[in-house]
């Protein structure tokens, strides 16, 4: 501690250098001691900075998955908690480990679950594609607009992200319902005779998915498009390429990291979405997040809900790794 005080803490560097080196000998002496102390302090400090978030996430994010996995291998019983335990003493002398794979077998065999998984993948895929098309146009437009209005446009993209997700879904319920604003408008201008059923259909889900996830697509796309070197486009044009050719052979390949990051940011959460399918989705178009929720709350089948979660996780590991890989390559500077 004393050693530290010898070094003035005001930020004038020149003075600091003079004071820190009164004589060569003492300076050497001090610096060894100081280094030792500093390295100890630095190490404790490192431990704290890394340790607190690490422990928190291990405890409240990683460890819970172990429980999910464990419970997925149990059997549902009527008790508290409502599942069989993994390890049990039989006759007081034998320790038996009960791994029950029935839940996974059921998921494989029952069409209901297979259809729900496939349907989730389909809806997430189509929604991601729509987001990509609309998002690309918008990101391209923002990246090519004047620097002065670029930030305003970007803020306009981010702003809805700050407003409640639930309320953004709700806003569409008022538009899409049978007596909703769109139907009323179409009826009023005589375009249709009777309301079109839009709520509780896949169409409603796609619209709301695109609406709520669009910012996640635009931001990574924008950050790659904005950094792109425009001279490449000029070179391509000078060499006689048509705009479409330039777009397909120069712009799109160069923005691939943004495309992948954006698609994963939309696709991964969309597969397991719960709020949208349960508010605007139809009863015959099951999605996996909603099924997990129902299995857990309506049927109180904890083990089956866990198995659904484990399978969903396995589905998401590959896209997640892809996303991690590409976001590591791209400097994430858009948030």
């Amino acid at each position: 501690m004393k050693e530290n005080r010898l070094i003035p803490n005001d930020h004038s560097q020149a003075e600091g250098d003079k004071a820190a080196l009164p004589t060569e000998k003492s300076a050497k002496h001090f610096s060894t001691l100081r280094n030792l102390l500093n390295s100890f302090e630095n190490r404790t400090w490192r431990g704290v900075v890394i340790g607190i978030p690490y422990l928190w996430m291990l405890m409240f994010f990683f460890l819970p998955f172990v429980f999910v996995f464990k419970i997925s291998l149990a059997e549902s019983i009527i008790a508290r908690p409502p599942f069989t335990s993994l390890i049990a003493w039989v006759d007081g002398t034998r320790l038996s480990i009960n791994l029950i794979f029935d839940n996974y077998l059921l998921l494989l065999e029952d069409d209901f679950f297979t259809i729900a998984y496939l349907n989730s993948l389909k809806i997430a895929f189509v929604a991601t594609l729509c987001c990509l098309i609309i998002g690309y146009i918008m990101a391209y437009g923002i990246a090519r607009s004047k620097a002065s209005i670029r930030n305003v446009l970007l803020l306009l993209v981010i702003l809805p992200f700050w407003t409640s997700f639930l309320l953004r879904v709700y806003a569409w319920m008022g538009l899409l319902s049978n007596h909703g604003i769109i139907n009323n408008l179409l009826l009023a201008i005589g375009f249709i005779d009777q309301p079109i059923q839009m709520m509780y259909t896949d169409f409603a889900m796609y619209v709301v998915f695109v609406y709520t996830f669009l910012p996640f697509m635009i931001l990574p796309l924008y950050s790659t498009l904005e950094k792109m070197d425009m001279s490449l486009h000029e070179a391509s044009a000078d060499l006689g390429a048509k705009p479409v050719t330039t777009f397909l052979t120069v712009t799109v390949p160069l923005s691939m990291p943004g495309i992948i990051a954006g698609c994963m940011l939309v696709f991964i959460p969309a597969v397991g979405e719960f709020v949208i399918p349960s508010l605007v989705g139809g009863p015959d178009s099951m999605m996996i997040g909603r099924m997990l929720f129902d299995e857990f709350f309506a049927n109180r089948d904890w083990p089956l809900a866990s198995a659904v979660a484990v399978v969903l996780l396995i589905f998401l590991v590959v896209p997640f790794m892809l996303y991690k890989f590409y976001s590591a390559r791209q400097e994430g500077r858009y948030v």
Partner: peptide
């Protein structure tokens, strides 16, 4: 997916 985080 938040359903998984919540459940776990």
């Amino acid at each position: 997916p938040e359903v998984i985080t919540g459940l776990s």
